[in-house]
């Protein structure tokens, strides 16, 4: 029998191809993962005797800068996909490369932020607030690293598919983009919850 159907083309009665449905399901499980974490945050905060103001321990300006960096990377991610739809491979690589660089910039800034905390003897073990701060942002950073790895693959060796199967490659970038937007969205929740509230 022929190869697996609907890897590229859309199935008429469901309106999606396999990869698109797969990534949405994966993101649903990610919602539950971070949902569990946020629930833990609420549970612990409600039960706490006192809870520090986020901005008293963390730097709001640095986090605001990082928020802008991530939003920017989301925009370049979309633009790289649009470039493929427009059949412009060079432009695609420029924008995806920019997305990767912005993600790395985010991680470097985050690294400075962590280091700053450690140098003031603020560790996960110091207080429940710092524990949840390091755990949530650490888990988010792992997701950023995952995204960087996937995007780097599509920027480099994975982009060979562009010449053999452009439609499928464009779909892959769209799917990678959905993941990337989700990771940004998590940060959009993390930022006010940890730094501002």
């Amino acid at each position: 029998m022929e190869m697996i159907p609907y890897t590229v083309e859309i199935r008429e009665d469901t309106g999606v191809n396999n990869a698109k449905l797969g990534i949405w399901l994966f993101l649903a499980s990610e919602v539950m993962l971070f949902g569990g974490m946020f629930s833990a945050y609420i549970f612990l905060r409600l039960g706490a005797v006192s809870w520090p103001e986020g901005s008293s321990l963390l730097s709001v300006p640095i986090a605001t800068f990082n928020t802008l960096v991530l939003i920017g990377s989301s925009v370049t991610m979309v633009l790289s996909w649009v470039a493929l739809v427009e059949n412009n491979f060079a432009k695609y690589r420029r924008y995806l490369g920019l997305t990767i660089l912005l993600a790395l910039l985010f991680l470097v800034v985050k690294g400075f932020e962590y280091n700053e905390k450690f140098s003031h003897d603020l560790y996960p073990a110091t207080s429940t607030f710092l524990a949840i701060y390091f755990t949530l942002t650490g888990l988010h950073a792992l997701h950023i690293i995952g995204g960087v790895i996937v995007n780097s693959y599509f920027w480099g060796p994975g982009s060979k598919m562009w010449s053999s199967d452009p439609q499928r490659f464009t779909n892959r970038i769209e799917v990678a983009g959905l993941y990337w937007h989700f990771v940004d969205l998590v940060w959009i929740f993390l930022f006010p919850v940890l730094y501002l509230m």
Binding site: S29, G35, G36, M37, L139
Partner: peptide
Amino acid sequence: LLLAFPPLEAAGVL
């Protein structure tokens, strides 16, 4: 499996 396991993963990380 998709929706119930991730909260345990969160708990496991904690």
